[in-house]
Design a protein around this nucleic acid. Sequence first.
DNA 1: ACCTTACTTAACCAACTAGTTAATTAACTT
DNA 2: AAGTTAATTAACTAGTTGGTTAAGTAAGGT
Lengths: 128, 128
Amino acid sequence: MTDQLSVQFAALADPTRRAMLRRLAEGQASVSEIAKPFLEEMSLPAVTKHLKVLERAGMLTKTQDAQRRLCQLEPSGFKEIVDFLELYRHMMEESLDRLDAYLKSVTSKRSAKKDKHQKGKQADGCQK
Amino acid sequence: MTDQLSVQFAALADPTRRAMLRRLAEGQASVSEIAKPFLEEMSLPAVTKHLKVLERAGMLTKTQDAQRRLCQLEPSGFKEIVDFLELYRHMMEESLDRLDAYLKSVTSKRSAKKDKHQKGKQADGCQK
DNA sequence: ACCTTACTTAACCAACTAGTTAATTAACTT
DNA sequence: AAGTTAATTAACTAGTTGGTTAAGTAAGGT
């Protein structure tokens, strides 16, 4: 499919590209800097291709600096995806709240009242 | 790639499957009920396959009711994805806020002070 | 028992993806 | 001018995806 939202989700459906985005979130970097952690697993052209996928998804922009290409994260590229997920994020939180309420009613003495579901943080810790 | 986060993003990288999830968000439905809007574009086995992709992604569960299979949205299946995106969602909001601040400083008389970036809502309106 | 409804499984195919190596482009260095 | 660094493009390949039709399974209806 060629619709933009599919292109964006497909861009995220790869651990190498997600790792690249995490790197980029820490600041801009050249292609070879981004490539460095991956050159044991894959060739430079493969890295170029991954970056192109992220670029077409609108999640990164490149600017030329002599021979180097500086890549920069483009946070606005996540807008459509985040908007799409809003509905399911809310449903998820509601169902967790219902679970909370249930557990609370079952244990009778509430265990960890405030702070609800504490936002587990940092998925994809392994990127195998 | 076989990691779960990739499986989940890949599941969302298809307009048919996203439309199915939106349908499911309104309540459970049997396979043929879900299939109905798509049977002009594709066959029933194709629908079965799409549902299986969503199931393997942990975003829906099926329960048997006589010959029918009732499908239900599984909001917890979105947790990893939502957690992964949290970082980029925040960066996006920050960069929008910076844009706000810039526009405010440029126009000198601020135009629409409160309400910030008003959450555009509902991406994927077309699902072509 | 037999038919129908509701799905799933199997076998196949075209198009796309993620990688490869080799060649090319382009800018700086000496 | 010749060489080096940085990255891309081209041509190819194996494996995956999204679809097909045809056959199979399993439960309820008559």
